[in-house]
């Protein structure tokens, strides 16, 4: 191969990286970046804790039996889910800052595939979701109000954490779709709507019939039912799983599609 001119590059030794460029170095650096953003980390931990302290300890209903424990435990699961999805959405939406900095375009000049990047960003957002969920469960434990068997503390916590992945994808997709300046305002607002429509803040039975029917197709509905299922012990509906899986596919697919398209100069 060295018989060509001096400049003839030996292209045969060059190859593309495996897994579309996915690797642990990037994952570690992304988590480090995220944790440097203290304001977001604190906000997504404090907000659901404050909600829990405000609504989860009310002695008028908190100690009433519910599922395998009491109402306070049910509310703790709900607000841990709200905190976790708020956190993962924020984590995902940080991609809008990267877009405005031209970082997405820079990444298009590397072997990193959109799918690998989406996977890295979703896993990173999960770290933020973990901190938010953990904060609610620790405060819940300290107050001593929520009661349920130990294994349910663990199982529901895991369900909340892993389930919040759907909203990491949501944050990413919207981060690519919406303008940077107001992406979090828009997302916080939609999350409140999704939370109401999923019955997370107020039981759906208190809403009109039409609203209840539409609500079943909204993105947080399936997830909210699923994370409470172990606690309530009433089994799992295929519709909940389908709701969660379809929304995850829509958000993750949308994010990968937008990243692929995002080569605009800044």
């Amino acid at each position: 191969m060295s018989t060509g001119s001096l400049a003839a590059p030996d292209l045969t030794t060059r190859r593309a990286p495996g897994l579309g460029g996915f690797n642990l170095t990037v994952l570690r650096l992304e988590v480090r970046r995220l944790l440097r953003n203290r304001r977001t980390v604190l906000f997504t931990m404090v907000l659901p804790v404050v909600f829990f302290l405000a609504f989860g300890l009310n002695s008028a209903y908190a100690n009433e039996a519910d599922g395998h424990g009491n109402v306070s435990a049910f509310i703790m699961i709900s607000l841990a889910l709200y905190g976790a999805v708020l956190a993962t959405t924020s984590g995902g939406a940080m991609v809008s800052i990267e877009r405005s900095a031209g970082w997405s375009r820079q990444l298009r000049l590397t072997p990193l595939s959109p799918a690998a990047y989406i996977a890295i960003k979703m896993l990173t957002a999960l770290v933020l979701g973990l901190s938010s969920m953990t904060a609610v469960y620790i405060v819940g434990g300290i107050t001593g109000k929520p009661t349920m068997p130990v294994y349910l503390w663990i199982i529901t916590a895991l369900c909340v954490w892993i389930g919040s992945l759907i909203f990491a994808a949501y944050g990413l997709f919207m981060g690519y779709l919406l303008p940077t300046e107001n992406v979090m305002q828009i997302l916080s607002f939609t999350l409140v709507l999704f939370a109401f429509a999923s019955g997370l803040f107020v039981p759906l039975s208190q809403f009109p019939k039409l609203f209840q029917q539409i609500a079943q197709y909204t993105p947080l509905y399936g997830l909210n039912q699923l994370v409470h299922a172990p606690f309530l012990g009433g089994g799992v509906h295929v519709a909940w799983v389908a709701n969660a899986a379809i929304w995850l596919a829509i958000f993750a697919g949308g994010a990968a599609w937008r990243m692929h398209k995002d080569t605009a100069r800044v």
Binding site: R33, A101, W103, Q106, P111, R265, V266
Partner: peptide
């Protein structure tokens, strides 16, 4: 590879982290 006029950098990483991030994406 390319050097662009503007953009393409993350403010919250250090110089070395940015280079390590980029390097980790390539096979060689």
């Amino acid at each position: 590879s390319a050097v662009m006029q503007t953009g393409g950098l993350l403010k919250d990483l250090t110089v070395e982290e940015t280079a390590r991030y980029t390097a980790s994406l390539f096979a060689h």
